[in-house]
């Protein structure tokens, strides 16, 4: 592929010292892959394989031991608005209204009020939250909260949107709808997405490519290209033989890893 590289991860390696035992623990062995502009890439792996650590390093929350992360050609150091994060527990500001949350990033970057409001209206419409501007997050359902989490990041137009198991804490019914919403939003806006999950169906349904990590210390096991047609929805996409084949293949990749996976309480 010779598309523009929005995100490049090269030989990422992370060790940390366990606070209790004092032992050195390898969280990430050696991870390299990249995400093209406008591409949806999921990172999938057994629990405790360090996939969230990869995201945290890309977000700038955690520093890598070695290796490099480049976003739009610039090496990453510390968190920044070019890498907006959607958190598993939403991390919305409870004391701000929906409007206050969605305009937060724009306000931080000094965008004028009129433009902020226009942008906010656009992204709230995109996620279906028009009319809820003056509500507080606790007045919204879990699914609506996470849609706000997505709108808040997209309104800030990051070079890459990082999503850390965003639907893991949401009930199965709502989760399917949110996945369809997300794939529609992706279709409309074409943001670059880096998506962490442990749900194989979710990864296949949403992604252009799925990066399968091996168990700890993690490395890239295989990168699976998902060339399912878009737009996608569960009713049709979920029934496609290619969808099932991809899902089974990835499940096998993960299962093959299970046999020699290290027992991990996390």
């Amino acid at each position: 592929m010779d598309a523009v590289r929005a995100l490049q991860i090269e030989n990422l390696h992370k060790t940390y010292v366990d606070a209790y035992s004092g032992d050195e623990v390898v969280a990430i062995g050696d991870v390299s892959f990249d995400v093209a502009e406008g591409e949806f890439v999921s990172v999938l792996g057994p629990s405790g394989c360090g996939k969230t650590t990869v995201l945290n390093i890309v977000a700038g929350f955690v520093e890598q031991t070695s290796g490099s992360v480049t976003v739009a050609g610039k090496p990453v150091s510390g968190p920044g608005p070019d890498r907006g994060v959607v958190f598993q527990n939403h991390a919305l500001f409870p004391w701000k209204t929906v409007q206050g949350n969605v305009t937060f990033g724009l306000r931080m970057r000094g965008v004028a009020k009129a433009e902020r409001e226009a942008t906010a209206a656009e992204y709230l419409r995109l996620v279906g939250l028009t009319g809820f501007e003056q509500r507080y997050p606790h007045e919204l359902s879990g699914g609506m909260q996470q849609r706000l989490g997505v709108a808040r990041v997209l309104a800030n137009e990051p070079a890459v949107m990082l999503m850390d198991e965003p639907f893991a804490s949401i009930d199965a019914q709502t989760r399917r709808r949110l996945q369809e919403d997300l794939t529609r939003i992706f279709q409309e806006q074409r943001p670059t997405v880096f998506f962490v999950t442990h749900d194989v169906d979710e990864a296949v349904f949403l992604s252009d490519r799925v990066v399968v990590l091996s168990g700890r210390p993690s490395s890239v096991h295989e990168i699976v290209t998902v060339d399912l047609p878009r737009p996608r929805d569960w009713r049709t996409t979920g029934e496609l033989p290619q969808f099932r084949a991809l899902r089974n293949r990835i499940t096998d990749l993960l299962a093959g890893d299970e046999s020699h996976a290290v027992a991990d309480p996390a």
Partner: peptide
């Protein structure tokens, strides 16, 4: 104050002073 709120603010472009006024102060209220 949940550390994730600070992280969220930082990843939307808030500087250290803004994190203080926008997250820490209301969060500890």
């Amino acid at each position: 104050v949940p550390p994730e709120l600070v992280r969220a603010a930082r990843s939307m472009g808030a500087g250290r002073i803004q994190v203080f006024t926008e997250v820490i102060v209301p969060g500890s209220l």
